[in-house]
Design a protein around this nucleic acid. Structure first.
Lengths: 252, 252
DNA sequence: ATCATAGTCGTCTGCCTGACGATAAACACT
DNA sequence: AGTGTTTATCGTCAGGCAGACGACTATGAT
């Protein structure tokens, strides 16, 4: 039986990106300003159409590179921290989510260290890192006193889902190291957890926990004082991806 | 600026279902036999096209009802166990995954108690519950001595991802109760964990754990001897959805 | 009556965590 | 040079939880 094109409705398929990083003690996401209708001028998550010959992960990696210049970390080279972490998040397909047409968006979650300045086609004013709480608050006013407009489309929901994924995933995996530069201290890693979870952690217990989990951290031998205070040992991410037992997010 | 249809390639969007249940001490998945090319005669996961006016979750619920008669559990009626658990799993969009055309499939995971006989359009021979290990083994021979053909398309990957999701999710949520009838005993719940994880659990420690977790189980007052031995208390699923601390899957 | 089966309650020990004291090693002052 | 501040790191102690396992209970089967 030949294939019948009238048997199904055509869809547009896009990838949207929740790109998270930690800047100045706050969990931040990459937002781009929309240049066209609908939601013209509003902030949105970066994304774009999946091309005809492209896998979903490829499309997400391409969009990530276009927006940030980040390459995706290659799991085949675990010792070498050569880029960001990227994983599929969820898919959003409400018939009304885009007023123009039927669009199904496969959202991806990317975690990156705080290095690159955003660039949306070279125009810095159209892309920025913003604290997720600022992007997610409905109404009210931002840090600069300007009124805050909600994110375009259903992107507030997508961002919220991505943040929740990141929050829960650093509990039982070593993913928090994806927010760190290739070499980092225990204190820097702790500040990642504190920023993502929005809590304060006991430095002594945290130190005991992460240095005591086999395969989580590998000492490089070096030390640094870039955080001030007593010099701290430098570590790389170890081979372990699953933490057992997990880091427990404090209650309340 | 008007919308330009030539700006993106058209996709077909489908939902595929990983429907899991526990039968005879084994984790089983629903499989349907393909009636047409490609992969004619091979076993596949149930699924179908998303309709033009339908949300992804609606499409999955519709397919689930068509294949099994199961209704989806409505979270608005938590006390009433009125159907199966359904959640989005992941999306698969390799350009080569369907030889006919570009198809993006949004896989969903459904967990159901062991009640309904499968029905694929009323034809029982074209649908069956099969142990997941049997569906996932490559080559070799099944329990009945027949050669085992791999699942159609990338459905082995989808099934494998769904099983892994279920295995990890019953650790930290009360989802295992979705495999049980509305009223069940601690022993029946333990056999669910044992079947899904493929391990043996200590009945005494399991009993202490599940009865000691607030909100997990609610005693109904009744007892049953349907499993033989001393009568066991009957429970319903409590309101708690997240288990803290989680059930720990034994190592090894 | 005896046995087999399942369920339920306890005990003990070791591990992990949270709370927190104490010390160490840098820098910024004065 | 000394003093204070900051951050890192080590130790101690008590409570909670999990794994191992003994003991007892209440059914049906033989």
């Amino acid at each position: 039986m030949p294939y019948d094109p009238s048997a199904f409705p055509p869809f547009a398929v896009t990838v949207d990106l929740v790109v998270l990083t930690v800047r100045r003690h706050a969990l931040c996401a990459l937002a781009v300003r929309r240049g066209e209708a609908p939601f013209q001028g509003r902030w949105a998550l970066p994304g774009g159409f999946v091309r005809a010959d492209e896998d979903l992960a490829q499309a997400a990696a391409r969009e990530l590179a276009e927006e940030t210049g980040l390459r995706v970390h290659d799991p085949a080279v675990p010792a070498q921290d050569n880029g960001a972490h990227l994983e599929q998040l969820a898919t959003y397909g409400d018939p009304e989510r885009d007023p123009r047409m039927r669009v199904v968006s496969v959202a991806h979650l990317a975690l990156a260290p705080d290095l690159p300045a955003p660039r949306a086609g070279g125009d810095a004013s159209n892309a920025r890192w913003a604290p997720v709480e600022e992007l997610l608050q409905q109404g009210g006013y931002g840090r600069d006193g300007e009124p805050v407009a909600p994110l375009a489309f259903d992107h507030a929901q997508i961002l919220s889902d991505g943040v929740e994924r990141a929050r829960s995933k650093i509990e039982y995996s070593s993913l928090a190291t994806a927010f760190c530069p290739p070499e980092f201290t225990v204190g820097e890693l702790r500040r990642v957890y504190e920023a993502v979870w929005g809590v304060a952690l006991d430095p002594r217990n945290f130190h005991r926990k992460v240095t005591g989990t086999p395969g989580f951290l590998v000492p490089t031998g070096g030390t640094t004082t870039r955080q001030g205070g007593r010099p701290a040992q430098l570590f790389r991410a170890g081979g372990a991806t699953l933490l057992n037992p997990p880091m427990l997010r404090p209650e309340v």
